Computed example of a mutant assay.
Amino acid sequence: MSRPLSAALLFAAAVLASVGAMAQQSERFGPYELHYSVVNTSFLAPEVAAQYGIVRGKKRAILNLAVREHVEGGASEARTMLIKGHTKDLIQAQDLSFQEVREGPAIYYLAPFKFINREWRFFKLHFRPEGATETYTFEFKHQLYVH
């Protein structure tokens, strides 16, 4: 197995393990489905974090996004996207800086941020999938804990 592919599998496993019993989160926008998760970076193996340039820490997390387009025949295909966004709590806001990651057919976007224990983070994202004629806005909140 190639090193980048094995790192991608380790990263995916770390993300899935950190989500635990929580169902995959996604939201539908016309023919597009935005998949999202928030992961505390302390769940990532050091070598996986290093591979993607992610700083691990108890008060650091990443937002992981991917968009898929539903096509004929019931299948879906990964799409690139233009994306901007920010996160805030009750005191401060942070612009999110996204890194595009491509591993085989998978395309996802990672944005690191800092947080305070037990706080609710509010996210607002504007994204335009490849081939779309519209920019979509998505907002959600997520509570974070130090592990």
Rank of each mutant, 00 (worst) to 15 (best):
E72W: 12
A61Y: 00
F127H: 01
G57E: 01
G85Y: 01
L63S: 03
G53E: 08
L96G: 01
F29T: 05
H86K: 11
T80Y: 09
K84D: 11
E33N: 15
L63Y: 02
R56Y: 03
V71T: 13
A21P: 05
L34F: 08
V38S: 03
S18Q: 14
P129Q: 05
R79K: 14
H35F: 15
K124T: 13
S76W: 03
R28C: 06
M81C: 07
F29G: 03
E103I: 04
A17R: 15
G73Y: 04
V19G: 11
G73H: 05
R28A: 12
V39Q: 01
G74K: 04
F138M: 03
A75P: 00
N64T: 08
R121N: 04
M1E: 14
F43A: 10
M1K: 11
N40F: 01
A13E: 15
S18F: 15
R102N: 07
E27A: 14
G20V: 02
S6K: 12
H35G: 12
V146H: 03
P112F: 00
R3M: 09
P4F: 03
T137G: 10
E139G: 12
R121A: 00
V19E: 15
K84I: 09
L5F: 15
A45H: 10
P105E: 13
V55K: 11
K84F: 10
A61K: 00
M1C: 13
L90R: 11
L44Q: 06
H142Y: 11
E139D: 14
K114C: 11
H70V: 13
L63R: 02
K88N: 12
A66M: 09
L110T: 07
I83G: 00
A111C: 09
